[in-house]
Amino acid sequence: METNMLQANPQNWYLVLSTILFSIGVMGVLMRRNALIILMCIELMLNSVNLLLVSFSAYAGNSEGQVFVFFIMVVAAAEVAVGLALLVSIYRNLATTDIDVLSKLKW
């Protein structure tokens, strides 16, 4: 009965929640210039998508969606490892993590 109650919320709420989180992530990516923060905002966006997937999976009674979320987490972990390594290497060369300084790649 207790678990039943836990799932009693309409799915739309989760949709709205994950959309709001995603938009906050987008806003952060646009607003901040620190590459580390941008990376964190991307993580936030990924998580909002994960939340959406889990809600669909749970409401449809299908485990496959959760397996997808698991794989997304795997990929995110790999991405963060490589992304932070890149960041360290950039910082070592330019002594900054400001993305606006990284404007060498142009016409």
Partner: peptide, 29 residues
Amino acid sequence: HYIMLNAQFLAIVHIIVYAGAIMVLMLFT
């Protein structure tokens, strides 16, 4: 939220992977 959605496995994995591994990595950086 995951626990609310009865996804215990993911909830645990989420905390281990994100809070435990990724965010520690971020802090160290």
